[in-house]
């Protein structure tokens, strides 16, 4: 277990530092099209080959990791924080607050939020940098992604609300806000942590789907989601198996994060 954890840690450090140092490590600019070498196989010039516009896959992968692996966890943090507060409050307060919460989360889960992404993109200035729209996209994913995890948090908070230690805290005259934060949300942390790890790949993929609609991270900036979209073309994957690298990275990072932090959780 210990070795596994150290190995996972090593993988994470490697991937994150590689993506932070994307500019240094990339053999080519991520957007540069080598139009005479499209869909090229790996070679010394292009260690992971090129895509259908002749762009170096390795450079794009490094930059995609930087965009997605920094922004998706940030979005997941936003979503789970909101989930903890809203779900925790609903479960803890019960009654009307809980009913309003359930309605609201139903609404959030069922509404087609796409229109919001659409309007956000059209509200951004046309000449906004791709990085700005990437941050906006993930931020919005985070803000909109609270409902699912919040349901889970609420269910747990409902249980906590009846618990002896919450009763005891009330008998101590604690203020409702402190109660929520210290007694409820603190005890939701393992649940929220699980939701957090689940949310990261979900957000990366959500960004990929938004990208299908042209709403995600905009060209020529690459994102993991954008690279994953290429896997749709299964024939191309068969003939260029190195295309699956982004998927491996995503699974690897989620898995490793889980190992490293899951262990932390047990120890504490």
């Amino acid at each position: 277990m210990k070795q596994l954890r150290i190995a996972a840690m090593g993988v994470l450090v490697a991937i994150f530092s590689a993506s932070l140092a994307a500019d240094l490590l990339s053999p080519h600019p991520y957007g540069e099209q080598y139009r005479d070498a499209v869909n090229a196989a790996p070679s010394r010039a292009f260690p992971m080959g090129t895509d259908d516009m002749g762009r170096d896959r390795l450079s794009r992968l490094l930059h995609a990791c930087r965009v997605s692996l920094l922004l998706a966890p940030a979005a997941a943090l936003v979503a789970t924080t909101l989930a903890g507060l809203l779900g925790g409050a609903a479960g803890y307060l019960g009654g009307t607050a809980d009913r309003v919460f359930l309605r609201l989360s139903d609404l959030f889960l069922s509404l087609p939020w796409l229109f919001l992404f659409l309007s956000v993109r059209s509200l951004l200035p046309l000449n906004a940098a791709p990085a700005v729209s990437a941050v906006a996209t993930f931020l919005l994913l985070g803000v909109l992604g609270w409902a699912g995890p919040a349901r889970v948090a609420r269910a747990c908070a409902c249980g906590l609300r009846q618990s002896d230690f919450v009763m005891q805290a009330k008998a101590n005259g604690r203020s409702p806000m402190r109660l929520l934060l210290v007694e409820i949300v603190r005890n939701l942390r393992p649940v929220l942590a699980a939701q957090f790890w689940l949310a990261i790949p979900v957000f990366v993929l959500a960004e990929a789907n938004l990208g299908l609609l042209g709403l995600g991270v905009s060209e020529p900036l690459p994102s993991l989601g954008g690279l994953l979209r290429e896997l749709e073309n299964y024939q191309a994957v068969v003939s260029q198996p190195w295309m699956v690298a982004p998927a491996i990275i995503l699974i690897g990072v989620t898995g490793c994060l889980h190992l490293v932090l899951g262990w932390e959780e047990i120890r504490r």
């Binding site: 002896d164 230690f165 009763m167 005891q168 210290v182 603190r186 005890n187």
Partner: peptide, 10 residues
């Protein structure tokens, strides 16, 4: 029940 009345995360 004293043990149940203390917040396990605190």
């Amino acid at each position: 029940s004293p043990l149940a009345a203390l917040n396990p995360t605190l």
